[in-house]
Nucleic acid binder design. Structure first.
Length: 823
DNA sequence: ATCGTCGATTTTTTT
DNA sequence: AATCGACGAT
């Protein structure tokens, strides 16, 4: 029996599989390949150093990945702790873990299945001191980055050279994704260019401040792990020894730093170091090869270059395109059969994506038949479009489709407004996934800053945030005084606060500062485990996260300030803070051994898609980016207009329009049975109403596939719906285009004033107070005209009228706010 | 130090 | 339309 030391658990020795090298493997259980097509089966069963699975949308890649992992373990070729699977979101990780557990049962525990960022944090916290970090380092999000850069740019007067926090942030992120640091940038910088010199200074200061605060930004999490492995090969060897099988999902969206990290993980360990490791008590039996070294881990990547949509964040499509060159002898398996969508949906997707040149030809197909036609609709305004979506959702729901099986996608978060307004009015249960997140609310960030300040006393950003929140009379002057006192005496901001007595500030201010410092100290004391806990290396005896939070909220006066405020919005803010307390209670209950730092880490790394609750009975609204990897019975793609998809901003970027097309492709392929494409002819931007043109991608879909309820050509300037052949030719090429295909979307060039066709569904909202309606009442609605109430449901402000309109058909309306009057 | 008003600026997508 | 920052009044 071979024993393998698990670096995760230095005290725990685990049993290793019976055989790990040479000889015939036990045949993987056939239940793992039953029902798979030949390609899928090959992807599960192939054994070798490198495997690329080119998995078209809906081709069952998660199934292949989970079965492959299960097969490795069941055949005793690998121990669970030797598996490292990287997914794109925590939700995908959780799902993969669950599915592997379903295949293997208890045997699945010990695997690392997580996102790049979570895995790196786990490694970095463990090895923090090697690279001069506190193991309680803070993770800065983009808002934090922006705050710091804003201060730096102001101090350096860098705005005179055209620097903005956003531009500096983008540039720093780009550099870090390429594994460039301040030194390497300095070496290549042109010292004659004042702009580059200034940027270098910004970059230098930014790096220094994060260092001093013991903080890392998102990009650092990856790059610092790479640096760690490169600077400390012995540390790297521990992980190279442990992880024998690396599996990476969504490989087309990896950036250079992530690629470099994968390469580090898959490096072999030379014999000399193996000998050294053995001398230090690291068990390597069962993983060495004939030469005495540890061979590089096997690598499986899954991806689809047609779904690469993160170039803006440094994703390098070459990682997948050049995989075979990077890993000689790599096996490639192509999965083209689709198990998700109808052929009509797939034909549309194939047609659209085939317009991207420079791609490997790939055609999705299904054996399940054509299915329903795709439905198209052109609204007059965004609200009109939203009303179409709401109506169709209601009619799907009446036909038996659950709300949770329906999703609405859009390109930009701003587009949620019109959709939400109409959905609220229509009493449609929905949830916006991502968007303005709970943890981005100011009051939540304040409360979190208290926790961060306790967990990581070096974090100046968090301290400065809470210094005068709630108001304690500590203004910018005092803040600056503290900061410079700290600077001059080589103290941290926190230490300066403790020493505030000697600064000669006003007595009131001084006492406010020391009181806060004491509260933080007391909270920090609550987190120290008991002697027994320390001895056992556990968190035993430390206060729960929720208790620390409640202590901080009460003693800092934050919660009282919100409750006693005259600002009516503060009531909601207080409720949000209560919700945060409830979340920490949940966290404590679900993770009894976890620390405050664990909680902060989890919060930092939640992805938009992680918020999805499969059990909720609501329609999901999300961006096209968030939609990647998900699937729904019915999908609505909205805002299919030039300037939105493709987005205006993408036009100037190389490869922009092609990436936007992939985004459209990703959206289409999320749909299982029903696909709805919609757009508006006018859209409000910055408060101004602008005329919108149909997206160029719409015409790439073969005409017969779409049933236009109201086509762009039909939606005339007067708001009428004169039926007109989709491909009716109009002389002169409307909209000044020569492209004949565009004409099927043409509208009359002499567009009438906007006011005339903004007469459809509007954003009108009113407060009807306690208007009472009952079945049988006649009402008039601003947009839908007259109708008869058939039923009233719900209570209080949520009362809903079900109305049969004379011309507009059946609708549900939230009585309190619908623009209606009783007749 | 705090509060209120005016004007500028904003929207791409996210771990 | 709405948020954010600068500036001036209290």
């Amino acid at each position: 029996m071979t024993l393998i030391l698990d670096p995760d658990d230095p005290a725990g020795w685990r049993e290793a599989p019976a055989t790990t090298s040479g000889g015939a493997h036990a045949a993987p259980g056939s239940h793992l390949t039953d029902g798979l097509n030949p390609e899928q089966r090959e992807a599960v069963e192939y054994r070798g150093q490198a495997l690329l699975i080119v998995a078209g949308a809906g081709s069952g890649k998660t199934r292949v990945l989970t079965h492959r992992i299960a097969s490795l373990i069941e055949s005793r070729e690998a121990w669970p702790s030797q598996i490292l699977a990287i997914t794109f979101t925590n939700k995908a990780a959780a799902e993969m873990r669950e599915r592997v557990e379903n295949l293997l049962g208890e045997a699945a525990s010990g695997m690392w299945i997580s996102t790049f960022h979570s895995a790196c944090v786990r490694i970095l916290r463990r090895e923090a001191e090697a690279i001069g970090l506190s193991s309680t380092f803070t993770i800065y999000d983009s808002a934090d980055q922006r705050t710091i850069l804003k201060r730096i740019i102001k101090e350096l007067d860098a705005d005179t050279l055209g620097f903005t926090p956003a531009s500096a942030q983008a540039k720093i992120s780009k550099l870090k994704n390429e594994l460039a640091d301040v030194e390497s940038y300095a070496r290549n910088a042109n010292t004659n260019d004042p702009q580059e010199v200034m940027f270098l200074e910004i970059f230098r200061q930014y790096t220094r401040r994060l260092r001093e605060a013991s903080a890392l930004d998102f990009d650092d999490l990856i790059s610092e792990t790479v640096y760690l492995f490169r600077a400390f090969p012995k540390v790297a060897s521990l992980y190279q020894r442990r992880f024998r099988h690396i599996l990476v999902d969504e490989y087309q969206d990896t950036n250079h730093a992530q690629y470099a990290l994968i390469r580090e993980f898959t490096q072999p360990v030379p014999r000399d170091r193996v000998v050294e490791m053995e001398q230090h008590g690291v068990n390597v039996r069962g993983v060495t090869d004939a030469a005495g070294g540890i061979p590089g881990a096997s690598l499986t990547v899954v991806g689809d270059s047609d779904q690469s949509i993160y170039a803006f964040r440094g994703a390098d499509i070459r990682n997948i395109v050049e995989f075979e060159r990077d890993f000689p002898g790599a096996k490639v398996v192509l999965l083209e059969q689709n198990y998700r969508s109808t052929q009509n949906i797939l034909s549309a997707a194939n047609a659209v994506i085939s317009n991207n040149f420079d791609r490997k030809e790939k055609k999705l197909w299904t054996a399940d038949g054509d299915g329903d036609q795709i439905v198209g609709y052109t609204g007059y305004t965004a609200h009109d479009e939203a009303q179409f979506v709401a109506d169709e959702i209601e009619s799907l729901h009446r036909a038996g489709v659950a709300y949770r099986d329906i999703a609405v996608f859009y390109r930009t978060n701003a587009q949620t407004r019109a959709l939400e307004e109409i959905f609220v009015r229509s009493a449609l249960p929905y949830r916006v996934v991502g968007g303005t997140k709970f943890y981005e609310r100011a009051e939540i960030k304040d409360a979190m800053a208290y926790l961060i300040a306790v967990a990581n006393p070096l974090d100046e950003l968090a301290l400065r945030r809470i210094l005068n929140t709630p108001k304690r009379g500590i203004g910018p002057a005092t803040e600056t005084a503290l900061a410079s006192f700290a600077e001059q005496n080589g103290l941290s901001f926190r230490q300066a606060m403790r020493a505030a007595d000697g600064l000669g500030l006003g007595p009131k201010v001084t006492s406010a500062i020391t009181t806060l410092a004491n509260v933080l100290d007391e909270a920090a004391a609550m987190l120290v485990p008991s002697a027994a806990g320390i001895a056992a290396g556990t968190n035993e005896g430390a206060s729960k996260v929720s208790d620390v939070l409640v202590f901080l909220l009460e003693r800092s006066g934050l919660i009282d300030a919100l409750r006693n405020s005259r600002d009516p919005q503060d009531e909601t803010r207080a409720e949000n803070v209560e919700e945060l307390v409830a979340q920490t209670r949940d966290f404590d209950r679900e993770n009894p051994q976890a620390t405050l730092v664990d909680f902060l880490t989890q919060v930092s790394l939640v992805a938009a898609a992680d918020e999805l609750d499969d059990a909720s009975g609501t329609v999901s609204l999300m961006t096209l980016h968030t939609a990647k990897g998900l699937e729904y019975h019915a999908v609505f793609l909205t805002g299919l207009e030039e300037g939105l998809l493709p987005h205006q901003m993408s036009a100037s970027e190389p490869g922009g329009p092609a990436e936007e097309r992939r985004l459209f492709y990703v959206g289409i392929t999320r749909a299982r049975k029903r696909l709805f494409l919609s757009l508006a002819m006018s859209r409000a931007q910055f408060g101004e109403v602008a005329v919108a043109m149909p997206s160029r991608y719409l015409q790439e879909i073969p005409e017969g596939l779409i049933d236009w309820r109201q086509s762009p050509g039909m939606a005339t300037s007067r708001g009428g719906t004169q039926p007109r052949a989709l491909n009716a030719r109009r002389p002169g090429g409307a909209w000044g285009t020569r492209d004949r295909d565009l004409e099927r979307f043409s509208v009359t060039k002499s567009a009438a004033p906007k006011a005339e066709w903004a007469n459809r569904v509007t954003g009108t909202v009113r407060d009807n107070g306690d208007l009472t309606l009952e079945a049988g009442d006649r009402i008039r609605h601003v947009d839908f005209g007259e109708g008869r109430v058939t039923q009233v449901t719900g209570e209080g402000t949520k009362r809903i009228a079900h109305v049969n309109f004379d011309t507009a058909g059946q609708k549900k309306l939230l009585i309190k706010i619908a623009p209606i009057e009783k007749l």
